[in-house]
Design a protein around this nucleic acid. Structure first.
Lengths: 337, 337
DNA sequence: CGCGGGGCTTGCAACGTTGCAAGTGGTGCT
DNA sequence: AGCACCACTTGCAACGTTGCAAGCCCCGCG
């Protein structure tokens, strides 16, 4: 139903090629011709066919952002940042959600530019590791986010998880807390985030001369509110409950907070709480959440820049870019102010 | 770099067409030929070119979900539901975010299937109204979500906002509250949600013999936590503050909750709170949030079904499908249990 | 031995666009 | 008058795929 170049050409009495020249603003078109063609374009409501254009040009102007879960605020907020960065460069971002399903992740990433119509991929894997990604048949550029992959031979952006976890834990130590628990450890080989943060947590305890106690390190399957709530209930059931908890993300912390408050305990007086991610929810909870804030804008910016450079043909060796983070102190550790 | 049908054909010593037949599992291929071609396919790691395929077939298998904001939990949760429904039908969903910017909305929706490469659109407009959408040049099917559009001549799914708001307000009335405020009214002609919910709110008050007081109806620019927090601060500054608040979405309610608690007041003892959307955050706040829960799965299901029917050539008149909702009573109105 | 038919394979064209290089007609210069 | 050149326009081919219909070969039957 929509008009094609040929139909416009017939109406304007010129060749298809000339219409194309007008559409693409080529300079070498006589003003009069241009006007006539433009009129025909308008009358027919011509819109270029993006699929044909992409086939011909080899570029779609689309980059895909592949994330485990969109209803996790951290990813939703990151998405906004990526969209903004990409828009500035004239690219449109489409988002896809994998649920951390290895099958879906593989599908999306391995197929690459042929099966999909994206010029590049920004991918935060949950299930897929370095080995899986090493020999992609596709040549679509990919930038990885997150901790999952170590040496996949792909561009990669991550924050220093060990360092950040250490900062968070040290903050609790400096407040005088001694029984500091951790929620979010993951024994699962494929989930690296939890292990790295546990490492930082333990390092901080050791540096303070505190001994990491196994019963205070609670593993969780996911990083959702429900997991935090359940883990916190376990901690409260201990004979000697903790006086502080470092949660490996803000959702865990919010779940834990809910459990603590519903047990009639106070935060931070009885138990201090630190989260990770700095999602908006944590700024509006009561008490508001002390947290590690990864620089999401910077992550997005690096990711898009790196990807666009690859699209421009840059073949330098894969980069491993660190992103900044900072500790944001709020009520859940220092109380009202 | 990736292999094409022709390269595979040369390697296998058959025609391009035969390779295509194998790739598409056509029955009329001799087993031996099929095996030989398959080997060549595997050796070259062939992946069909989705762009070429789409151009030829006229279908991409992609539907776009166009939303105002992804970092608003309601939309993130809705997205999950849409993705699930579409996946069941073999479609892939890509998500795009407009920020409610009329320019971006128009771009995405008016251009339709030519500028983009999507078979259909599920669109929740914020800025664009019926008039804007009526004469789209494109023939891509569109299903609208939300309250914004009334008679755009397009398929449309929404819940009964007036009725839902009435139910929420009546719940507060039945708890014995008398000074019931509302947060989220919008005078802006283009934002219809707020006006509809105010209508239901007033209807419930009238039915209970209570007079709606202008100073208890607080408009907000957006539906974010910050707006709720600010509006609640205004309400608390009144000489005679409310004893209950109906917030037009859960984020507003969470912002309001934060303000109430930080003023040393209790929920629900001093002020009862009802939200709208039933986002996960509200289940884990303290107190948990009483809210109107729109059936998101049903909305997604209707949207995808309707869209797919249009893609199959259904030309029946535009449908206006209602979606269910229910009041979920939690602690913010009835206290701990 | 010739012919019809079935199983399998193929060539051609087209989806709508753009790169390339050639083509057209007119103008100005010698 | 002839030629070169310029401004502008055009045809051809190709991106990689698939629908269509024709083609090939071999088998079995008369």
């Amino acid at each position: 139903m929509p008009a094609t170049l040929r139909e416009v050409a017939e109406r304007a009495g010129v060749s298809v090629r000339t219409v194309s020249n007008v559409v693409n603003d080529f300079p070498q078109v006589a003003p009069e011709t241009r006007a006539r063609v433009q009129r025909a374009l308008d009358e027919l409501g011509y819109q270029p066919n993006a699929v044909a254009r992409t086939l011909r040009r080899g570029r779609s102007g689309l980059i895909a952002l592949v994330l485990p879960e969109l209803d996790v605020p951290y990813f939703a907020e990151l998405t906004r940042a990526v969209i903004e960065q990409a828009a500035a460069a004239g690219y449109t971002v489409v988002v896809d959600q994998t649920d951390g399903d290895p099958v879906r992740e593989r599908e999306l990433v391995m197929r690459g530019n042929r099966a999909a119509m994206f010029d590049g991929l920004i991918f935060n894997p949950l299930a897929l590791g370095g080995a899986d990604l090493r020999d992609r048949p596709s040549s679509t550029p990919v930038v990885l986010l997150g901790e999952r992959v170590v040496q996949g031979g792909l561009d990669h952006i991550m924050i220093d998880n060990v360092g950040a976890a250490e900062v968070a834990t040290r903050h609790l130590v400096e407040l005088g807390r001694r029984r500091i628990a951790a929620i979010g450890d993951q024994s699962d080989e494929s989930r690296r985030t939890g292990r790295l943060r546990t490492e930082g947590y333990q390092a901080a305890l050791n540096a303070a001369g505190l001994e990491p106690l196994p019963e205070l390190i609670r593993p969780t399957t996911y990083f959702h509110r429900a997991d935090g709530a359940a883990a916190m209930a376990d901690l409260l059931a201990l004979p000697d409950p903790p006086d502080a908890v470092f949660c490996y993300n803000d959702l865990l912390a919010l779940g834990a907070l809910r459990t603590i408050l519903s047990h009639g305990l106070r935060v931070p007086e009885d138990i201090a709480l630190v989260g990770f991610d700095d999602i908006e929810d944590g700024r509006y909870s009561t008490p508001s959440l002390t947290t590690i804030s990864p620089n999401k804008t910077q992550i997005a910016q690096h990711a898009v820049e790196l990807l666009l450079r690859r699209l421009d043909g840059d073949t330098s060796p894969p980069a491993e870019l660190p992103a900044d983070y900072e500790l944001i102190v709020r009520e859940s550790t220092t109380g009202k102010h």
